[in-house]
């Protein structure tokens, strides 16, 4: 361990501001990217499911229409 105490570690020899800022921004950017990328999968699948349902409904309606027409 390079530092004598935990408070020394936090203080970073008086340059805490720079070090923690740099690490903080990096961490924030990377986690944001990760969360956005991971969440995208669910939203994508939901969109696809919605579209599939919509198409099924259209297909069903078309089928109904056809059967109705053949009846009359």
């Amino acid at each position: 361990m390079h530092f004598d105490s935990f408070s020394d570690f936090i203080a970073m020899g008086g340059h805490a501001f720079y070090v923690w800022w740099a690490y903080g921004i990096t961490f924030t950017l990377l986690t944001t990217l990760t969360i956005v990328s991971v969440r995208r999968k669910n939203s994508l699948l939901k969109e696809i499911a919605k579209r599939a349902q919509h198409e099924d409904k259209l297909k069903q309606m078309r089928k109904d229409k056809k059967t109705n027409e053949s009846k009359t």
Partner: peptide, 15 residues
């Protein structure tokens, strides 16, 4: 926390 300090630069070299 564990890497030694740099000779010329201070702790900010850890960036």
């Amino acid at each position: 926390a564990f890497a030694p300090a740099e000779l010329y630069q201070k702790e900010y070299y850890r960036i």
